[in-house]
Computed example of a mutant assay.
Amino acid sequence: MTVTFRAVVLGTPDPPALADFYRALLGWAEMDREPHWVRLRDPESERSGLSFQYEPDHVPPVWPQRPGVQQMQAHLDLLVDDLDAEAARAAALGATVEEHQPQDDVRVMRDPHGHLFCLFLPGA
């Protein structure tokens, strides 16, 4: 038997809208779009992608984590070559920069539906 990693799936109350954000941020191509499911993939690669699944009761995690509230289960790490420029571009697309930043060469951000992602420089 062979197991192959296919995608990370983010739950969201509006899969098409969140997919549009990540498509613009990553420059990825849309592979499938339905009202409750959207799949993106890097046009330069046949490998894994990012998908968005309808979850009407999605609750964004709290950052930094603390007991008794919605915990972060996963986040996306996105390599960039210019941290300030890419953080500004992500914000212009609808992301927000988190107040708590654990280190200088990383930007913890939230997508428009509250999922956490980190922009980081090579070597970080």
Rank of each mutant, 00 (worst) to 15 (best):
V3L: 03
T4L: 10
T4D: 12
F5C: 08
F5W: 10
F5V: 06
F5R: 10
A7Q: 14
A7L: 09
V8M: 11
V9P: 01
G11F: 03
G11A: 09
T12M: 14
T12K: 12
P13S: 12
P13G: 11
D14S: 13
P15L: 08
P16H: 01
A17C: 12
L18R: 13
A19F: 07
D20M: 09
F21Y: 03
F21V: 02
Y22H: 03
R23V: 01
A24I: 01
L25Q: 01
L25C: 04
L26G: 05
L26V: 06
L26F: 03
G27R: 07
G27N: 09
W28D: 08
W28N: 09
A29M: 00
A29Q: 06
E30S: 14
E30D: 13
E30Y: 07
E30R: 15
M31T: 13
D32P: 05
D32K: 12
R33V: 14
H36F: 06
H36P: 11
W37C: 07
R39D: 14
R39S: 13
R39P: 04
R39L: 11
L40D: 01
R41P: 11
D42F: 00
D42W: 00
P43N: 05
E44N: 15
S45L: 06
E46V: 10
R47S: 15
R47E: 15
S48T: 03
G49I: 01
G49M: 04
G49C: 03
L50Y: 02
S51M: 13
S51R: 08
F52Q: 00
F52K: 00
F52G: 00
F52H: 00
Y54E: 15
Y54G: 14
Y54T: 14
E55H: 06
P56W: 03
H58E: 05
H58K: 12
P60T: 15
V62Q: 07
V62F: 02
V62Y: 02
W63P: 12
P64D: 08
Q65Y: 01
Q65P: 10
P67H: 06
G68F: 00
G68S: 02
G68P: 02
V69D: 05
V69S: 04
V69T: 12
Q71L: 07
M72L: 14
M72N: 09
Q73C: 07
Q73P: 03
A74D: 11
L76M: 13
L76Q: 10
L76S: 09
D77G: 14
D77Y: 04
D77R: 07
L78A: 02
L78M: 03
V80T: 14
D81C: 03
D84I: 06
A85T: 08
A87D: 05
A88M: 04
R89L: 05
R89Y: 02
A90S: 08
A91M: 15
A91R: 15
A92S: 15
A92T: 13
G94C: 09
A95E: 12
T96P: 02
V97A: 13
E98S: 13
E99D: 14
E99S: 13
H100M: 03
H100T: 04
Q101V: 10
P102N: 12
Q103L: 08
D104T: 14
D105M: 06
D105Y: 02
V106P: 10
R107W: 02
R107D: 04
R107I: 07
V108N: 13
R110C: 01
R110F: 01
D111E: 14
D111H: 06
D111K: 04
P112E: 12
H113P: 09
